[in-house]
């Protein structure tokens, strides 16, 4: 098996690591970097629990090889809160009970974060479409939609202020 060395920025920290060519990016993040907030619900691109921001775009890390991340800037759920202060999305999920078991939550948050950059003032239906690539088995999505909607308003206000 060929080995590769990659350099990647994750949540603002620069890492250089060597790995097998076949290592999935999701496994690299969890095993090599110890960032276990990125979860694996299917490993075939259907559930979205492994969603990260890859150069600012939401992607499913189980569908990428780690070597593809050479030179990339990645953000995982661990990068969302700053200095112990929760991101408005995190606050809003907490406030609106947008999570139960929490397994889908990191991926849901990362995808919502990206989605709101593309559509900062979404309708409920747009939110539902925006997160349709992320499965949640616990919440029936009701409170997730509420949480994202409320966070969008909060974030828009913060921007305005």
């Amino acid at each position: 098996m060929t080995r590769h060395i990659i350099t990647v920025t994750v949540n603002g920290t620069l890492y250089t690591r060597e790995m097998d060519a076949r290592k999935l990016l999701s496994d690299f993040i969890r095993e090599d970097l110890g960032l276990t907030g990125t979860h694996l619900g299917c490993e075939h691109g259907q559930c979205g629990t492994c969603t990260i921001l890859f150069n600012g775009v939401s992607m499913k890390s189980c569908l990428l090889l780690a070597t593809q991340a050479d030179g990339a800037k990645i953000m995982t759920v661990e990068g969302l809160a700053k200095d112990g202060v929760l991101h408005p999305l995190q606050e809003s999920f907490w406030e609106h009970h947008g999570l139960q078991c929490g397994f889908c939550t990191p991926g849901m948050l990362m995808n919502a974060l990206y989605f709101l950059t593309v559509n900062p003032r979404p309708t409920d239906l747009e939110i539902r479409r925006g997160i349709a690539g992320n499965l949640c088995r616990c919440t029936g999505y009701v409170n997730i939609v509420k949480a994202i909607k409320a966070a969008a308003e909060k974030m828009a206000q913060n921007k305005g202020a």
């Binding site: 969890r30 960032l35 276990t36 979860h39 929760l86 999920f93 999570l99």
Partner: peptide, 19 residues
Amino acid sequence: IKRREDPRLLTGKGQYMAD
């Protein structure tokens, strides 16, 4: 009452079996 489990789950610090 807001759940006290949530901050760890929201910040990627939950601990599941795979972790």
